[in-house]
Write a protein that binds this DNA or RNA. Structure first.
Lengths: 213, 213
DNA sequence: CGCCGAAATCTACGGTGTAGACCTACGGCG
DNA sequence: CGCCGTAGGTCTACACCGTAGATTTCGGCG
């Protein structure tokens, strides 16, 4: 089977999915394909070019939303689709952020997003703000500062212990941790609902600004 | 002058500021300090430990907000202070995102943020949501998907050209680019006002949820 | 002085991306 | 058929990286 750009990209994505992005080296990739590492350079400018390319592949996997008269629903669906894609390739967010310029499929995605926003009747300046405030969320990044579904899900005992010890130096975070780890009120911390909560808060804010204008 | 952890960290931050984070290697850093690279390992576990440490230094530079009765103003000020710090160290955001756990000064910062939020009267569950929706914004990351102050600020001619060529494949982005590059309506694209816009939209949304509850 | 422990250094190993020379196979053409 | 240009695969080699492990240096103290 002849080496080809497509085969290289497919293998690269597979390797990153399986072993993590830090394991994606030209040598490992060549090995994966049973080929000399230098052969890859006939199909890809350099490693940066390879990363550009697999980002393009992954972003290209995002499904467009169904046509829908309601701009908020369409946008919501598009962004949740993006998030689903990024969850399938956990390394992708980091790599995308490290690219200087958006890839073609990223441009296509942004165009679709912008089309939904403008089609919904938001004026150009508000649409511009919307793109900024949504930020990397339009590509499905949850952009959480740190993972507070920590404390190991099932070990409620240890989690509560950690929350209590946290409370010594950081009382406010301690009470939060205690509550999140089920001991107190809000049960657990579902990333999906948090993502949706933030997204809806932003979309609602935008709509309010639209009707105000 | 004896080598010390403090001197190492200071030099590392300086080097990253000056030459970019990708130039920060143990060898380069040793050279910067006129010392054998291996000497650094007497004060730092390994390179990851070094990165952990300089993140902690940078986040520690964030100034707390003045005491203020208005939680929204205090939080706004804290977050804008964080942003100022991050703008001084453009590499920091990327490095912070690559850490698995928050550093001590990050914890302190989060504690202050949480204290402001809770002090403002937001119930615990809403405070939890708030931390998530603010995400990395609490550390001042603008998390823009790509830099749309592109097109080279001063070269309005070329920028308009680029906008027009963009309009071929991506009409919605094209009209946006045209407007942003001053030719149309909204003049330019100020990252600071965009950051503040998004922040205020989120803060206002949170306040509305608070009063609704 | 001698000794000890910590800090600094030296050497070396296995990894990285990739430049440049080399080889090889194949399609087109006289 | 023979030839040759070219595209793609391979080989070798270089400069860099992080760091393990052995070794040397040096300041303070008995």
């Amino acid at each position: 089977m002849a080496l080809s750009r497509e085969r290289i990209l497919e293998a690269a994505v597979r390797l990153a999915d399986r072993d993590g992005i830090e394991s994606l080296s030209m040598r490992r990739l060549g090995q994966e394909l049973g080929v000399d590492p230098m052969s890859l350079y006939n199909h890809v400018r350099d490693k940066e070019g390879l990363l550009d390319a697999i980002v393009d592949v992954v972003v290209g996997e995002i499904e467009p939303a169904e046509v829908d008269t309601d701009w908020k629903s369409s946008l919501r669906e598009t962004i949740l689709n993006a998030r689903r894609t990024m969850l399938r390739h956990p390394w992708a967010a980091r790599v995308i952020e490290s690219r200087a310029d958006p890839s073609p499929s990223t441009m296509r995605h942004m165009e679709r997003v912008m089309d939904i926003i403008r089609g919904g009747g938001l004026p150009l300046d508000l649409a511009h703000h919307a793109l900024h405030v949504l930020g990397s969320r339009v590509l499905g990044f949850s952009q959480d500062l740190f993972d507070d579904s920590d404390g190991v899900p099932r070990d409620a005992e240890a989690a509560a212990m950690l929350a209590r010890q946290l409370a010594g130096s950081y009382p406010r975070l301690g009470e939060l941790a205690a509550a999140v780890t089920h001991e107190g009120g809000l049960g657990g911390c579902d990333d999906d609902v948090e993502f949706a909560f933030g997204l809806d808060l932003i979309l609602d804010g935008l709509e309010r600004l639209r009707t105000a204008a």
